[in-house]
Design a protein around this nucleic acid. Sequence first.
DNA 1: GTTAATTAAATATAATTATAAACTATAATG
DNA 2: CATTATAGTTTATAATTATATTTAATTAAC
Lengths: 403, 403
Amino acid sequence: MEPNILTGSFQLMKSLNRSVILNTIRKKGGISRADIAKTTKLTPPTVSNLVKELLETEMIIETSLGVSSGGRKPTLLTLNSDMFHVIGLDIGSHHLKIILTDINGRIRKKQIHPIPDSITNEGLLDLMITSIYAIQKNEQIDRNKIIGIGIGMHGIVDVDQGVSVFAPNLKLKNIGIKDALEKEFQMVVQIENDARAMSLGELWFGNGHGDDSIVCINVGRGIGAGIIINGQVFRGEHYISGEIGHMAIDLNGPKCTCGNYGCLQTFASGPAIVESLKKELKLGESSILSNKENEIDGEVIYQAALAGDLLSKNILNKAGRYLGVGVTNLIHTVNPKRIVISGGVSNAKEFILESVKKTIEQRALTDSAKQTEVIISKFGADATVMGAIALILAQLFATPGNT
Amino acid sequence: MEPNILTGSFQLMKSLNRSVILNTIRKKGGISRADIAKTTKLTPPTVSNLVKELLETEMIIETSLGVSSGGRKPTLLTLNSDMFHVIGLDIGSHHLKIILTDINGRIRKKQIHPIPDSITNEGLLDLMITSIYAIQKNEQIDRNKIIGIGIGMHGIVDVDQGVSVFAPNLKLKNIGIKDALEKEFQMVVQIENDARAMSLGELWFGNGHGDDSIVCINVGRGIGAGIIINGQVFRGEHYISGEIGHMAIDLNGPKCTCGNYGCLQTFASGPAIVESLKKELKLGESSILSNKENEIDGEVIYQAALAGDLLSKNILNKAGRYLGVGVTNLIHTVNPKRIVISGGVSNAKEFILESVKKTIEQRALTDSAKQTEVIISKFGADATVMGAIALILAQLFATPGNT
DNA sequence: GTTAATTAAATATAATTATAAACTATAATG
DNA sequence: CATTATAGTTTATAATTATATTTAATTAAC
């Protein structure tokens, strides 16, 4: 069947305006009815009526009176952030991270649970359910004031069905997460690929407020990108948009786990960096890591580089240059306003970011493309779980018609 | 200043519904008021009122009576395609092609003008203006029933300003096309990059009716892609989305005109194919083109391949494989539903398409990605000019709010 | 061939919501 | 303390869609 066509009706008109007002309050935070009318170009009575309704739902509250510039003092309105809460999960390769936030995304509680090796679908679902109960324990929070549960998950995710189709790092397939959690908790549940969740988190909580187009690149065990266009997560036809880890950049390069040669993640992922360094050590390069081959992981290399180890620095720089090639390809394809780099490898920002930028400067076609903003995520290891929160908030504050 | 926020109002409600009805008539072609009400879920009186208005504007007409299935015969409505017309231009490297169509995109007249070498900005604008006058000559068409002029142009185009920022093949910069033509003709003028125009044309007139996500790849002197997401042309932040000709796929590959190495268009563009064949000839490969080095161009190679020349076939196949690598990178980034290949090189479809498909089959990550539809444009050399028409039609039939 | 049922379209009335204009409340200013 | 500026509310009105009813035109059944 055709999807429902969006037609104009009184309900649409009203819900659109209510949403516009709610979002204005969210963005400006502490704004009077009169100012809402000015910025939205709605008339004062319309604003007053809808604000009254929003006050009744307790989504917003009247706070202090503002300062007057000659006339009645404005009554300032803000989101009622103490009332409503959101739960976010980040399902990684070894750990499940869960947070509880208010609707401004301020973290109230954070917990981490290890994920046992060779876990089953049912085991993972059980772990998720118990962790969701656990984080609510001893919290003075009305259960039906929890708006929803957002989940960021690596691998391929069918957002509409709410299924983790393939989670390679856990070796699991077809986990029916949404159905299971909705049945258990009777609230909104939304699951999304980790890089895409991150990118939405970056849009909501990062510097990129608004309707921008941004790309968030998650560089860790693999490399994945989340693409935001006009403020909407872009998923592609089969939920594999942004799978840039397997972008071919050097057809004569090393063999990748996918079977092809020269994929981006054979150069710039965490494992690739470790391999690259080990190989140099075997070739006899001198380094402070020379006799510690078994202890080497990404963090160790980063610390060595910080301590001044030239080989470690060079290896990280090289990874940055390759990442820059991939990023430039993305700029020439998606041409976003801003690119945010996150994930484990982005920890080594001092040694990565500059070489990414230099590579873009060198390779990008036009001056404007060269000036594409490239930053490191400010959320560090919390990027995915904040993105999971953003999934629910994006839905809560969505404008009618913009699915 | 902030862009205007979209708020609900009676005008919006009405114009949304009018647009929904108009588009329903356009898509279904020959549909009764009652059926419109059913498919749109608008009520019959609403439909009747808006249909009355649309009849008054002469945008639609009542045609025959349909067949009854027990009851009054339905009055069928269609677009009044004989009344309104659109002009489309394709500004290529050597020729200006111009067509006049009705609002169903049916071509009424087509003309081609050569573009002199070393033309100036003013010269090109003059040529455009005279060609637009010329195509209207001897046509029984009401001047103010021409809806607009669409222009597809290679290079980088600033759609909002209506300026061709950089047209490398004509060696021109900053041609203020929109302003000049709007001043001369007082009607809607829209200019767009050729690949993006093509992609919109493919969406409107090709197999891909609807709100799909498709990518159209123009393989000629360069390689450019037009990306359509949710039925909207996607341009990127600096109008360079889809510039995949300079996607790095082989960092150790040949040097490109852009200064980098291993760009896609050093392998799969028209000039790259010609160079590649000439090189093989020099190396002594036998071919029916062996002593005709000066006559070789894309068309000659294609004809040779058709005539059974093995070298020509191999060269075209190889280009197809490289193109397939680029296309697979696109699938892993944008993940569209359908990919359409057009431009000069796509003429050699017998020798290109299969190797593109094989490469995707070999390299794509998931089964669903492997099944991405890849077709050759059915418009051939008319792809850009049909896209230019689509630019205007897309605007005419746009839903309010979806800019 | 008359009548009932069905479908299409128009019309009249009601309901919903935004808008405009008038009004009340409150504060700063001189 | 009057004047003026600003915030917010009330009332009346206008622009629409929605609902219910009516008219028209057919087909199908008896």
